[in-house]
Design a binder for these strands. Structure first.
Length: 289
DNA sequence: CTAGGATCCTGTCAGC
DNA sequence: TGCTGACAGGATCCTA
């Protein structure tokens, strides 16, 4: 679930909340969700927070780093006496009592505040890594560039290197380009008017450039609007909002009218994932029965 | 090398 | 109401 914009939102949010606070304790409620010796974190503190694609990197002062990945349903929730900051997979946990039944790990800081790692499906994890672990990590070292760090030439070349693979599969492959997930792939394809089921090699140079620009744009706007955070989830009147409503043109809008041409948005399966698109704005879909 | 499917988990929702 | 299957904002492993 959480894609690059959500992780960046977590990074920015936590940066102003947990840095340089002594960790009193780290409680692991689900063994599967944590790798490393949690007791060794006592007395330590986080000194910096980085992000690489969808991976969160919490730097400890002693050279070690906690690598975090939210996968499908992970979220980070910080609570102190003044309130809370919640970002990641948007659901009822954003406003639930902490720890909740989906809390897998939590940290208590010396000022009495807490940081909770929640993860309904338990696909995500936090892992204590030494400098060497981090350097040798397969997932991190194989990550492709983020859309902003990729030149138009390289993006186009990448598409042609995987010309018989669907656009969707290429954009979801973190080894080729990192940060995009199911939402932003669909949104970027809609914005650039490319049907995600087309083979990568069929894009013209102009379409390739537009697709890259669209990927950058949809994610930039999502970051600027705060990704999926509690502030978007809880509306001013206290009711629950849907942060997708703010910018999603196609994602989970199947059956609704395309904002551009009014045609019904369709949902099909591409590269094993639910895929939303406008059949008129993004031509190329051949119905098979 | 690629593509497709199963898998890890828990929960929700549609359909009967 | 209760059951069943499909599906889910990710990534990996296996097979063909």
């Amino acid at each position: 679930m959480p894609e690059l914009p959500e992780i960046e939102t977590i990074r920015r949010g936590l940066q102003g909340l947990i840095l340089n606070k002594k960790i009193v304790q780290c409680c692991v409620l689900c063994e599967k969700s944590f790798r490393g010796e949690s007791d060794s974190l006592q007395g330590r503190e986080f000194v910096k927070i980085d992000r690489k694609g969808k991976a969160l990197l919490l730097g400890l002062g002693d050279g070690r780093t906690i690598l975090g990945h939210m996968r499908m349903t992970g979220q980070m929730i910080y609570v102190d006496k003044d309130g809370r900051f919640a970002a990641g997979h948007p659901d009822g946990n954003f406003i639930a009592e902490m720890p909740s039944r989906h809390t897998r790990v939590y940290f208590e800081f010396e000022d009495g505040s807490h940081l909770y790692f929640n993860d309904l499906r338990k696909f995500g994890f936090l892992a204590i890594m030494s400098e060497k672990d981090l350097k040798n990590d397969k997932f991190l070292s194989e990550l492709g560039p983020e859309p902003w760090d990729m030149r138009e030439d390289d993006f186009y070349e990448m598409l042609n290197r995987h010309k018989n693979t669907s656009i969707k599969a290429v954009l979801l492959n973190q080894k080729l380009i990192c940060g995009l997930g199911n939402i932003y792939v669909d949104e970027a394809c809609f914005k650039s008017k490319v049907f995600p089921g087309r083979n990568a090699g069929t894009l013209t140079r102009a379409e390739s450039d537009e697709l890259l620009a669209a990927a950058r744009d949809v994610m930039t706007r999502a970051i600027e609007s705060g990704g999926s955070t509690m502030k978007d989830y809880v509306k001013p009147d206290g009711s629950r909002g849907n942060y997708l409503d703010k910018f999603a043109q196609v994602f989970r809008r199947d059956g609704e009218a395309c904002t551009h041409c009014g045609t019904n948005i369709l949902k099909i399966r591409v590269a094993g994932r639910g895929t939303h698109f406008c059949p008129k704005c993004q031509p190329g879909y051949k119905e098979t029965k």
